[in-house]
């Protein structure tokens, strides 16, 4: 029997799960939509990724915005923030990486690395104009499937300029441009370009982007955005085949590092998880306390501001 490790990355838009072997090779992976329900998404994901027959599961890690909840649900041994997870995942495959650009569904980050150690990072604080959610909502608006979005952008020779400082203004600018009769390709290319510009303006201010640069997150699958990163940074931006899974891979690696001898199983399909929120009226803070029940037993609660 060989050991393997599971990493789950529950993002705002998509849920990723991978199973790694001892040598950090991906044995099984899946990428599905969260659709607003992380518990169901994880249940679904765990049906798709399977522990191969001659392997035993020795560790589970969770990351992403629902890491705490899912960590409790699957009994993870590592619960880590997505910044660390992405850095660790990338460093496993590219030990000499210096810059990681990551654009996800709702946030975007940049991580700078020197000698295998994170030296600086930034995460968008203001607006979602440089993220995947913006692209997918605009794709819907123009009536283009998000999977064809990147390819269409490549066909354009004349990307329109879009004011993408803020999602709301970008959208009205976009409407304006399409009312003027610009071609769809040009508008899409303009959008991809504006995402890149916004990302660089927002996050990379005052930071030196050293090569090699690695681009990951769901948006890295978009050829249009990739093209403009290459063009504007004047560098060859590396996109791994598993770039969209990097967070999950990173946390699986961490689960491996901190593994004990415990053996995990993934039979959570029939267990009912329920989250109940209630407003504590102990003081005027009125904290929203979240309680998580596993088959009607309280397993944890958080959200309180005071000690009680």
């Amino acid at each position: 029997m060989k050991d393997c490790y599971l990493g789950i990355d529950i993002g705002s838009i998509s849920t990723k799960a991978v199973i790694l072997d001892e040598e950090n090779k991906v044995l099984s992976s899946c990428y599905i939509e969260t659709s607003g329900s992380p518990v169901d998404a994880v249940k679904k994901a765990l049906k798709i990724v399977r522990v191969p027959n001659d392997y035993v599961l020795k560790g589970i890690g969770t990351t992403g915005s629902a890491r705490k909840l899912i960590g409790l649900m699957v009994g993870a041994n590592v619960v880590k923030n997505e910044i660390t997870a992405h850095a660790i995942g990338t460093l496993t495959y590219y030990p000499d990486a210096r810059t990681i650009l990551e654009i996800g569904g709702q946030d975007s980050k940049i991580i700078l690395i020197n000698n295998g150690v994170i030296t600086d990072y930034a995460m968008n604080t203001l607006c979602a104009a440089g993220t995947g959610a913006f692209l997918s909502s605009q794709a819907k608006r123009i009536g283009v499937d998000i999977n064809d979005f990147g390819k269409m952008a490549l066909n354009s020779n004349n990307p329109v300029k879009i004011a993408a400082r803020c999602t709301v203004f970008a959208e009205s600018d976009l409407v304006h441009k399409s009312q003027l009769g610009y071609k769809k390709e040009d508008i899409i290319a303009g959008l991809c370009r504006s995402v890149v510009l916004n990302y660089l303006n927002n996050l990379c201010k005052g930071k030196r982007l050293e090569k090699p640069i690695i681009f990951q997150g769901g948006v890295s699958k978009n050829q249009g955005v990739r093209k403009y990163f290459n063009e504007i940074l004047k560098a060859d931006v590396i996109v791994d085949d598993n770039s969209h899974l990097m967070g999950a891979i990173g946390v699986a690696v961490l689960a491996h590092r901190q593994a004990t001898n415990k053996i995990y199983n993934l039979d959570i399909e029939n267990i009912k998880f329920e989250t109940k929120g209630y407003e504590c009226n102990g003081c005027s803070n009125n904290c929203e306390v979240v309680r998580i029940y596993k088959d009607n037993h309280l397993i944890d609660s958080f959200g309180n501001k005071c000690q009680n």
């Binding site: 880590k80 923030n81 997505e82 910044i83 660390t84 150690v117 994170i118 030296t119 990072y121 995460m123």
Partner: peptide
Amino acid sequence: TRLEAFCDM
């Protein structure tokens, strides 16, 4: 999230 990442770093 930011604070946690800072501590990890």
